[in-house]
Amino acid sequence: MLEGKFEEASLLKKVIESIKDSVKLCNFNCSQSKGITVQAIDDSRVLLIALKIDSGSFQEFRCDRDLVLGLDLESLSKILKQGNNEDYLTIIAEDSPDSLLVVFEDKKKDRISEFSLKLMDIDSDVLTIDDMEHDCSITMPAYEFAKIARDMKTLSESLQIIITKDSVKFNAEGQIGSGSIILKPHTDMEKPDESIKIELNQPVVLTFGAKYLNDIVKATALSSTVTIKLTDKAPALFEYRLPSGYLRYYLAPKFDD
């Protein structure tokens, strides 16, 4: 049996809102040692989502036997919208479940609401992602990256990211013209999350589809910072930290064959 209680429903709500537009169906793997893990790939096979909600993200977590919950995220999202952000949220499943029980408890009122979501058998193929060495890594405020991704999409369907020791440059060239945004590393002592950190083994220039970057920044509400790891001619990793765990996106770049 699985029983996981979140202190606040908002965490799972935000996670599902971050991924449901990229992947519609996915398997939630549940185990006592790993909590909940998900790997899912979008239909175009360009964007991969790797989610880990550790047991530490829950107020209470027990999972007697490893379980796979096949979920339609659109349906789960509908059910999660029934609860308030501050409610306790408990998800419950039997050992061979055909449904997931979702329970909201209002902390102030004596109100408990229960929903049952039908589970599905989902055939998903899983990719092997080795721990990669990266040419460079940037950590920056998540909202700032989101603004750049959204703004630059209005200029071009591609966004070029150029990293050097001294700066990260976002470059867009489109029909109406072009634009670039240059950020330099700095440390904000009072608000560390406002800092921009660049770690560099070697400079990188990579181009990504603006559409996918705009899917990724839907996770902005989850974390104050985003870490972007880039390697020449390889998929990029965008990581949003959860209180205990992470939401990672792997995005294939564009380049000439």
Partner: peptide, 14 residues
């Protein structure tokens, strides 16, 4: 114009 790559090119299936 550059070509959009897919992840299958970089990661193996399990």
């Amino acid at each position: 114009t550059q070509k959009q790559q897919t992840l299958s090119r970089f990661f193996g299936s399990q």
